[in-house]
Nucleic acid binder design. Structure first.
Length: 752
DNA sequence: TCCGGACAGTTCTAGACAGCATGTC
DNA sequence: CTAGAACTGTCCGGA
């Protein structure tokens, strides 16, 4: 089928595709068109990565928009939202408008309603439905990317329930689900009343193989000799690709391994760089160091100078995009990564090496082989269409037996079927409340009827399981005052609040208990601990020695904690409580202006983890504040206003990462925790001071950076922000330099 | 005296969505 | 329960 044969698209779009060099549709794309994708028919496309899924989505959405409709594209990760937005923006010239909505990147609500195509995460869509966004009713087409995610115990149910709700709101909704090749795509097609397009076709050839000793065995029966002295397998593979002019992606099973591998592989890549590349890499390394001055950041920069990099969730997001971009530009020759990269933004590579195919799993306390689906996702990163002759995906065997095992287990194996995880109690807790609160079900029958529309219902034969769990969950929600049940189901004011705030009801219950328990003004640590022990916060892991260390802190600061502290003999409960304490201490350190590198060192985490924890804490404390307000309204006991004030203060402190006295200053744009502290030390203690203060003192406190200082003065609304002819005050500058060195001396005493 | 290599024992483990108000891609 | 890479510490031998 030819692009010119496509009908139903906005004017100019077929020509646009043609100009892009797309003439003949790929077979799966043609199949999707035959299934009626441009005529509003629902389709489930189960096809490999990089075989033109986005194009299928575009056909569905653009034709829908051409008919006067509105399309929604659901992405699994925030990072993918902006990537997709950029791809779709090329259609703006044909009158199609694009909008994005994710938690950290919100376009104005009304503005969003006027967009033709909206890109959002599944959680954001869920939240928009809960909050009654009007434009949801106008949708004519929804595309769900990476639907196999319904298999994920944590985030899968959200996608599942969201799709069910969207289809319920609009029964004529065209549903397009894009999935990796999975074992049971047919079941998903049944669920969504869609035509199945199931194909393993790829635009460029993918050779899969296993390395054992010196021999690389491929699935087509060929073998390649890989000369290596005492070089490690991975290094030899990377070198071989490099000599062939290609780059490699190495998947390993822990962050530490990723960092260690990058360090070692840098010795291989450094001998394969041109002078130009070396210069560009130095520049990128500098940018990396600018992102954060932690050890992780420095290690990454050092590796990048030599043409290698690591990639994992402990990196700041700026780190990640710098690495991804430089890899796409072929400057970085190899990335060693944890699975973040397999699911993340598009980073294709000539060769993919899956070094570790087992991963530690805390639930069973040992190593567990990766899912076939996961390994295939990693494989799918091999080969850049149009650039590489073919892609290569390689596993590494340590014995002859393992060679055969890996072929059977991953190379030849079909991916597992995906299974709905909806029937788990934590998932239902939040979704049942939301379903009732946003009016999708007014009785238990209606609720069960709604749940019948989920993938879970189409997959299970086991009757009664869902009913039983639903009863448990309803009891729980009733008991905690989130809903009332007689012959009907009704969410209480509190229940509505919890649903809108996107909280797990269990988190809300924990927070409410804690706030009720507070008498007087709770401390920041107490509040950080409270939110850290909710199920919505990922807790830090207790390492050796931590148990003793935090037990001691727990007793020292016992009066500060809200709610009941489990006894030391309730093993699991106590451990969890201590993990939360460790997390709370991190937040307290951050809010006490402790340097980023000290924090990463103390908790053995990366700069990205600090941002993540801080962001979550901010969100949960905001929720706590609103819950307190809600209780004030319909509860005789209420929450004392001193508590609410303390919550707000704790949230602001964690948001800016500063002590209380800097809150005013840190709110000024371009003034972060460090600059605020320097200004304060120079005697400028508030925004008002900043507007009045001697300019040379301001400049001195900001270490003579004129441009920055002018911006800041402008942002704070100073009449005449110009700093021409102003010299930095020498004494202030000297003090400022000192203040930076031992800044954040508070609360250092407890360790080492 | 210093250094590297071999060896044994120890340590530690992936990921990341959401609110709100403001101000940016 | 079902691991394994990397790090740490120690000892030895050679220069």
């Amino acid at each position: 089928m030819n692009v010119a044969d496509l009908t139903g698209l906005p004017d100019g779009v077929p020509e646009h595709f043609h100009a892009q060099g797309i003439e003949e549709l790929y077979p799966p794309q043609a199949e999707a068109v035959e299934a009626g994708i441009t005529e509003g028919e629902s389709v489930v496309a189960s096809i490999p990565t990089a075989s033109g899924k986005t194009f299928i989505a575009e056909l569905a959405m653009l034709s829908s928009v051409a008919r006067g409709g509105k399309a929604l594209y659901i992405v699994p990760l925030r990072a993918l939202a902006s990537e997709k937005k950029e791809e779709f923006e090329e259609f703006e010239q044909y009158g199609v408008s694009i909008g994005v909505s994710t938690g950290n990147y919100e376009s104005d609500g009304d503005w969003l309603a006027s967009r033709d195509i909206i890109v959002a995460t599944s959680e954001k869509v869920d939240s928009l439905v809960r909050n009654g966004a009007k434009w949801i009713d106008d949708l004519s087409c929804v595309v769900a990317d990476e639907v196999h995610l319904v298999n994920d115990a944590h985030r899968g149910p959200t996608l599942e329930v969201t799709l069910a709700k969207l289809r319920r709101v609009n029964p004529d909704l065209q549903t397009v689900a894009l999935s990796a090749t999975v074992g049971n795509a047919g079941e998903m097609a049944d669920w969504l009343d869609a035509t199945l397009v199931d194909s393993t076709w790829r635009p460029i050839d993918l050779r899969k193989g296993v390395l054992y000793g010196q021999a690389l065995h491929f699935d087509d029966g060929t073998q390649q000799e890989l000369a290596r002295g005492n070089e490690k397998e991975t290094a030899a593979l990377v070198r071989d690709t490099l000599e062939d002019g290609g780059s490699s992606l190495v998947f390993v099973n822990s962050r530490r391994n990723a960092e260690a591998a990058a360090k070692r592989l840098a010795d291989v890549t450094k001998t394969h760089l041109t002078d130009d590349e070396r210069r560009d890499l130095l520049d990128i390394a500098d940018q990396i160091r600018d992102v954060s001055d932690t050890e992780t950041s420095d290690d990454l920069a050092t590796a990048i100078e030599k043409g290698a990099a690591f990639h994992h969730a402990g990196l700041a997001s700026d780190h990640r995009s710098l690495v991804e971009d430089a890899f796409r530009d072929k400057l970085i020759k190899v990335i060693s990564a944890t699975p973040t990269l397999a699911a993340g933004v598009n980073t294709p590579s000539r060769r993919v090496i899956v070094r570790d195919w087992r991963r530690y799993d805390g639930d069973i306390g040992g190593m567990q082989p990766l899912d076939v689906l996961e390994v295939h996702q990693m494989f799918g990163r091999a080969g850049r269409p149009g650039l590489d002759p073919h892609g290569e995906a390689v596993l590494i065997a340590k014995s002859h037996d393992e060679l055969q095992e890996l072929f059977d287990q991953y190379v030849w194996a079909d991916p597992e079927p995906v299974h709905s995880k909806l029937a788990a109690e934590p998932a239902l807790r939040t979704h049942i409340l939301a379903t009732v609160a946003s009016g999708f079900a007014g009785t238990e029958e209606e609720l069960l009827d709604f749940l019948e529309r989920t993938l879970y219902a189409t997959q299970t034969d086991e009757t009664g399981r869902l009913e039983t769990v639903t009863q448990h969950v309803l009891d729980y929600l009733d008991r905690n005052g989130f809903l009332e049940r007689d012959d009907r189901l009704r969410a209480t004011g509190l229940g509505h609040r919890v649903s809108q705030l996107y909280l797990d009801p269990m988190s809300a219950a924990e927070i409410i208990d804690g706030l009720r328990d507070a008498d007087g003004k709770p401390t920041a640590l107490g509040l950080y601990h409270l939110v850290s022990r909710t199920p919505d916060m990922y807790q830090l892991y207790l390492r050796s020695g931590d148990r003793e260390r935090y037990t001691e802190i727990a007793y020292e600061r016992e009066p500060e904690f809200l709610g009941h502290m489990p006894s030391e003999f309730e093993d699991n409960a106590f451990e969890d409580w201590l993990s939360a304490l460790k997390t709370a201490r991190l937040l307290e350190d951050w809010a006490s202006e402790l340097d980023e590198d000290r924090i990463t060192e103390r908790y053995a985490i990366g700069p990205g983890d600090i941002r993540g924890k801080v962001e979550t804490a901010q969100w949960l404390l905001n929720a706590a504040e609103r819950l307190a307000a809600e209780l004030q309204r319909d509860d005789a006991e209420g929450i004392p206003s001193a508590t609410t004030t303390a919550v707000r203060e704790a949230r602001k402190r964690v948001e800016y990462g500063v002590e209380e006295e800097l809150l005013d200053l840190a709110g000024v744009r371009n003034v972060g925790r460090k600059r605020a502290r320097r200004l304060y030390e120079a005697g400028i203690e508030s925004r008002a001071d900043l507007r009045e203060a001697d300019k040379s003192v301001v400049l001195g406190a900001l270490r003579g950076r004129k441009k920055t200082a002018e911006n800041i003065l402008e942002n704070v609304g100073r009449q005449d922000p110009s700093l021409d002819d102003v010299e930095a005050d020498a004494e202030t500058a000297a003090t400022s330099a000192r203040a930076t060195n031992d800044g954040g001396q508070q609360s250092l005493g407890d360790f080492e």
